[in-house]
């Protein structure tokens, strides 16, 4: 049985600490904006959490350093996006409250970023597929009519550009490497491809922000992503998976709507342990 979409999750409000600050004045498209900020922040948080699982276990010391560095960039970005989400929401929730005190159904990250690390090939392929999307998203966000979004995106864009440079380079080298590295990268691509469609689905929140000129529709980012991916896969001598069934793109499904895979609950159980076990303690 699939988990329930977030609209069915009761009592989300009760998870938030009593908000002392006065609610911010209602701004136009507030709900859509909060959704977008949660989606963007949660992508960074969950992928950062996943990458940090490699710490000390990567196949070379340089990779330990690089992955920790990327995780650090993503955690930093998530602090900014979630901080802004809490401010726009106006219920007094901080970035930490949002990261540590929401249950899985309230998370808005893509299914792709919660996929388990598996082998290093899966980790790199997941990173590449996401980085290529992330850069396009941030490129658009840099030009947002909302200066708060544009400001965070300008900082994050620089990091994402480097992330993509690195992950694309490794996908090429491993795809066009040994027979084994080629096969592993091809297998990773096959396993992850059906989680890429969700990045480009549009829903009412997306349409509201597009209409307001805050962010373009996710679907508009697709052609650039397709070009990057096709070019890198070609150079990597990997076979493009073509049209396959995509996960999380129906009206009721997908991480963007809070309907996640089983993996997210386990990730959160670990990540939120101290905040849940010692409510209200300061660290």
């Amino acid at each position: 049985m699939p988990s329930l979409p977030d609209v069915m999750t009761p009592a989300l409000e009760t998870l938030a600490p009593a908000g002392q600050p006065a609610p911010a004045p209602q701004e136009a498209n507030r709900d859509a904006l909060v959704e977008w900020l949660l989606r963007t922040g949660d992508n960074a948080l969950i992928l950062g959490q996943r990458l940090s699982e490699w710490c000390g276990h990567a196949p070379a010391l340089e990779e330990d350093i690089a992955l920790a560095n990327q995780a650090l960039d993503l955690i930093g970005q998530c602090q900014l996006w979630l901080g802004l989400a809490g401010a726009v929401e106006g219920r007094g929730r901080t970035a930490d409250d949002l990261a540590f005190l929401r249950d899985a159904g309230a998370f808005r990250n893509l299914l792709l970023v919660e996929r388990p690390n598996r082998d290093f090939g899966h980790t790199l392929m997941r990173q590449f597929l996401f980085d290529a999307f992330h850069l396009e998203l941030l490129e658009a966000a840099r030009a947002s009519s909302d200066p708060r979004i544009a400001e965070i995106a300008a900082k994050a864009w620089k990091e994402a550009a480097y992330h993509l440079e690195r992950s694309a380079d490794l996908v090429v080298r491993l795809g066009d490497g040994s027979a084994e590295s080629h096969d592993r990268m091809q297998a990773a691509l096959a396993a992850l491809w059906s989680f890429t469609g969700e990045m480009f689905t549009d829903d009412d929140h997306d349409r509201a922000l597009a209409d307001a000129g805050v962010m373009p529709l996710p679907s508009s980012l697709r052609p650039a992503w397709d070009r990057t991916v096709a070019q890198v896969l070609d150079e990597a001598t990997l076979t493009h998976p073509g049209e396959v069934w995509q996960q999380g793109i129906t009206d009721m499904g997908g991480g963007k709507r809070g309907v996640h895979s089983e993996h997210l609950g386990h990730l959160l159980a670990q990540m939120q342990f101290l905040q849940r076990a010692y409510p209200g303690a300061r660290w």
Binding site: L61, I65, L274
Partner: peptide, 26 residues
């Protein structure tokens, strides 16, 4: 220390611990 990165209690503590462990690899 990597044993606790995933369970760091705040985002800031997580970032600091990541940076520290990364320094050690460096």
């Amino acid at each position: 220390e990597g044993n606790w990165i995933g369970r760091a209690p705040t985002l800031e503590r997580k970032a600091i611990l990541l940076a520290k462990v990364q320094d050690e690899a460096g």
